[in-house]
Amino acid sequence: MGRGRGSTQERREDVIRAAIVEFARTGYRGTSTAAIAERGGVTQPYLFRLFPDKKAIFVAALVRSAEDTRPAFETAADGVEDVERARQVMADAYTRLISTRPETLVIQLQGYAAAAQGDDLIGEAVRAGWLSIWETVHLALGVDAEQTASFFACGMLGNTLTAIGLPMATG
């Protein structure tokens, strides 16, 4: 463990969590490294000892977001045998995640947008995170790829409706 306020790894984690919030608030282009450093409780020079540049911070934030999202699905479905019940508890767990930490949804959407614009480094992080979540859900549901895709299609509709401020249709 490092001196003072925690180890380098702990400080790095603080910065990543701060970056998720800042990127969610003001977007990739609108977020300054100074704002991330301030929220993360580090100086800007120290921030650049932890990360080579702002893009590396954004990629780390995307990776952390996927790493935070995947267990929400996995834990919710643990021990659930019925496929329909598993779908529901996973959807509910994700809904709780993005309602208590809305920055998770925002950073995911920003990552998709950056990947769609052709940024290879960001695209690679987004794809890896997505595949990790896909595999978790696919295994938990125990269904074919088409049914897993259907689960995610409904989820992406929910993400879109949430992002634009419309409630999910029920019933």
Results as ranks from 00 to 15, higher is better:
Tyr112Trp: 11
Gln88Asn: 12
Ala128Gly: 03
Val126Tyr: 14
Thr8Asn: 12
Ala153Pro: 02
Lys55Pro: 06
Asp119Trp: 01
Ile20Tyr: 00
Arg87Thr: 07
Arg85Lys: 14
Thr100Leu: 12
Ser150Asp: 15
Pro167Glu: 10
Ala19Met: 07
Ala169Asp: 09
Ser32Cys: 08
Gln108Tyr: 08
Leu105Asp: 03
Asp119Ile: 02
Ala77Gly: 15
Glu13Ile: 05
Asp144Glu: 13
Thr148Ala: 14
Ala18Pro: 09
Ala114Ser: 11
Ala91Ile: 01
Phe23Tyr: 13
Pro71Arg: 06
Phe48Glu: 06
Gln110His: 10
Leu139Arg: 15
Ala56Tyr: 09
Ala93Gly: 06
Gly123Thr: 05
Ser132Asp: 15
Trp134Lys: 09
His138Leu: 05
Gly30Phe: 08
Ala34Tyr: 15
Arg29Ser: 13
Thr75Ile: 09
Leu139Phe: 10
Glu74Ile: 11
Ala169Thr: 10
Gln44Asn: 14
Asp119Glu: 09
Ser32Lys: 09
Phe48Gln: 04
Thr100Asp: 14
Pro102Phe: 06
Leu157Ile: 14
Ser150Phe: 12
Leu109His: 02
Ala37Asp: 06
Gly158Trp: 07
Glu38Asp: 14
Glu146Arg: 15
Phe73Ile: 01
Val83Ser: 03
Gly40His: 05
Leu161Thr: 10
Glu38Ser: 14
Gln117Thr: 08
Ala77Ser: 12
Arg39Asp: 07
Thr8His: 11
Ile57Met: 04
Ile98Gly: 00
Ala113Pro: 00
Val63Trp: 07
Ile98Gln: 07
Glu146Leu: 15
Ala125Gly: 03
Asp14Gln: 15
Glu146Pro: 00
Ile36Tyr: 03
Val83Arg: 14
Leu109Ala: 08
Tyr28Arg: 09
Ala116Thr: 09
Leu166Ser: 11
Pro45Tyr: 03
Leu50Trp: 04
Trp130Ile: 01
Leu50Cys: 05
Leu166Lys: 12
Ala76Leu: 02
Ser65Asn: 10
Arg39Tyr: 09
Val83Asn: 02
Phe51Arg: 01
Arg101Ser: 12
Ala76Phe: 01
Phe51Val: 04
Gly165Arg: 09
Asp92Arg: 13
Asp78Ile: 00
Met1Val: 10
Asp68Gln: 12
Tyr28Trp: 11
Arg85Thr: 15
Thr31Asn: 03
Gly30Gln: 07
Thr136Glu: 10
Asp119His: 04
Asp92Trp: 01
